[in-house]
């Protein structure tokens, strides 16, 4: 499970009805922030890989309508995209990253971006080159999909609790002496139960002698 890139873009809304004007290739989304991990590419491929990712992100963002979520398979990447009121977050992940977690992460990215920058993104017309620290940190932190998905986190916490309980019981059962004292001190067992347990033990001892 791996995230390769996270980007925030503003799809272009100019000439929504026309596919192209003049010789241009059509409207392009503007990159507002990006964090891209190309460390698994060769030294000379890294800049090309970065360009490739930005290019695909622009393409996908431009084709994600406001209010829409979509996932696009491209080469070995799954590209997830979420457009909320014209602000679009895009993530490049592999096939094993859960889709729920991916969109939960994109939601958080959009929330944090609006907290940090308000509505200033609406007037941006050219790519931003300054790094946004939250996005860079998120790229590292959310390599683990549980960090992005609260339900998954709770589920895993419950699993761990069960494991702890099992260990506790097992460790107690491994020491008979402690169980004796536990029986003595336990206020949950009635006096009759205590008497029964002790007599049972004595009977066992008598049998051993015989």
């Amino acid at each position: 499970m791996k995230i390769t890139a996270l980007l925030v873009l503003k799809p272009s809304t100019s000439g929504a009805g026309s596919s192209s004007s003049g010789g241009e290739s059509g409207p392009e989304a503007v990159v507002l922030a990006n964090a891209i991990d190309v460390s698994h590419f060769g030294y000379f491929q890294r800049s090309a890989a970065r360009e490739f990712i930005v290019f695909v992100a622009r393409t996908v963002a431009q084709r994600t309508q406001p209010g829409q979520r979509q996932s696009v398979q491209h080469e070995e990447y799954k590209v997830h995209s979420h457009n909320r009121n014209g602000l679009c977050a895009v993530a490049f992940m592999d096939d094993h990253y859960p889709v729920r977690s991916a969109f939960s992460l994109l939601n958080q990215v959009l929330d944090e971006y609006q907290k940090a920058y308000g509505d200033s993104w609406k007037s941006v017309t050219a790519d931003e080159t300054q790094q946004w620290a939250f996005l860079t940190d998120a790229l590292t932190k959310f390599q683990d999909p549980a960090e992005a998905d609260k339900l998954m986190k709770i589920q895993r916490d419950l699993d761990e609790t069960k494991i702890i309980l099992h260990k506790t019981i097992e460790s107690v059962l491994a020491r008979g002496e402690r169980l004796d004292s536990l029986v003595e001190k336990s206020s949950d067992l009635s006096a009759a139960s205590q008497m029964f347990y002790k007599q049972a033990k004595k009977t066992n001892q008598c049998c051993t002698i015989l």
Binding site: F41, Q45, A48, A49, E51, F52, F55, E75, E76
Partner: peptide, 10 residues
């Protein structure tokens, strides 16, 4: 397969 896409981009 992977670098082919990069070659195209480059």
């Amino acid at each position: 397969k992977r670098i082919k896409a990069l070659l195209n981009t480059q």
